[in-house]
């Protein structure tokens, strides 16, 4: 394997990826139904009580039946969805800033998730997170998987 092979391979990779992005654009915004269906496919035993879909349509915070113990996170990655359930095993930080909410946690492939909510949805998100925090760890640090 020499540099000619490496550079020509890299050129072919960029060309094919560009072609794929043009031929298969990610145009369809995800709906709450899509998110619910996908989350429950990965987590069949968990009941989702509410979905707070970010105004950017690429992230969602899921309120679950056992809200004190877990929250669902769904993010868009390309044309697919990625689901996580946050429990109480490792640290999660929530930062509120106007209509923005930023989650950072100890996940190597998902270090942070950003949400943008309307005022009413932000209120619901805060209630869920506060309930989650208060019930799990009184000192205010939320732990998650």
């Amino acid at each position: 394997m020499d540099w000619v092979q490496v550079t020509s391979s890299l050129g072919a990779i960029i060309f094919l990826a560009y072609l794929a992005s043009k031929m298969f654009p990610n145009q369809k915004p995800f709906t709450k139904d899509d998110i619910l269906k996908e989350y429950q496919r990965y987590n069949p035993g968990i009941i989702v009580t509410n979905i707070l879909l970010s105004q950017t349509n690429d992230t969602a915070l899921l309120q679950l039946e056992s809200k004190a113990k877990s929250l669902g996170i769904v993010t868009q990655r390309g044309d697919k969805l990625v689901c996580r359930t946050i429990l109480f095993s490792h640290a999660v930080n929530w930062q509120f800033s106007g209509d923005r909410l930023l989650l950072t946690h100890d996940d190597f492939t998902q270090p942070s998730v950003a949400f943008k909510f309307s005022a009413s949805e932000m209120q619901q998100a805060k209630e869920s997170i506060n309930s989650f925090e208060r019930d799990v760890l009184p000192e205010g640090k939320v732990h998650a998987v």
Binding site: A12, I13, I14, L16, A17, Y18, L19, A20, S21, K22, M23, F24, N26, G78, D79, K80
Partner: peptide, 24 residues
């Protein structure tokens, strides 16, 4: 390339640009 065009024409196969780049 052949599969890309086949998928584009028939709609049976999906590619995603960033996913394709990462895989290759």
């Amino acid at each position: 390339l052949a599969e890309l065009f086949y998928g584009w024409k028939k709609g049976r196969i999906r590619y995603e640009g960033k996913d394709t780049f990462t895989s290759m």
